[in-house]
Amino acid sequence: MIAIIGLLVGIAIGILWHPLVPLWLQPYLPIAIVAALDAVFGGFRALMEKRFDDRIFVVSFLSNVIIAAFLVYLGDQLGVGAQMSTGVVVVLAMRIFANAAAIRRILFRA
């Protein structure tokens, strides 16, 4: 419940207040979103499998975002920023799909 409220409040803040994203942060924004989504789907799957743990979710959420951002930063420094971003997004998207499939199997038994 609190999670949904938090999500809505976050969206509301984003729309109403409209903070300017610093330029150096902008390349990491999409990566951070995908990484966070991966953590959310992972948490959702764990919830379905009745082994959800608050601590693991929080840690995996933060570490996912930080590691993904760090990888992209590293890629930028090595001159392969675009490829690294693509790679990170592909891997995370694969994980999201795998988690979504697991959730689907539990929810719909299909």
Binding site: A3, G10, G14, L29, I33, L37
Partner: peptide, 19 residues
């Protein structure tokens, strides 16, 4: 922990809208 998770989702919503 629930508040913490709520905060994380707040950040996620903010990021998504910003993007």
């Amino acid at each position: 922990p629930h508040l913490f998770i709520g905060l994380l989702f707040l950040i996620l919503g903010l990021l998504v809208t910003l993007a």
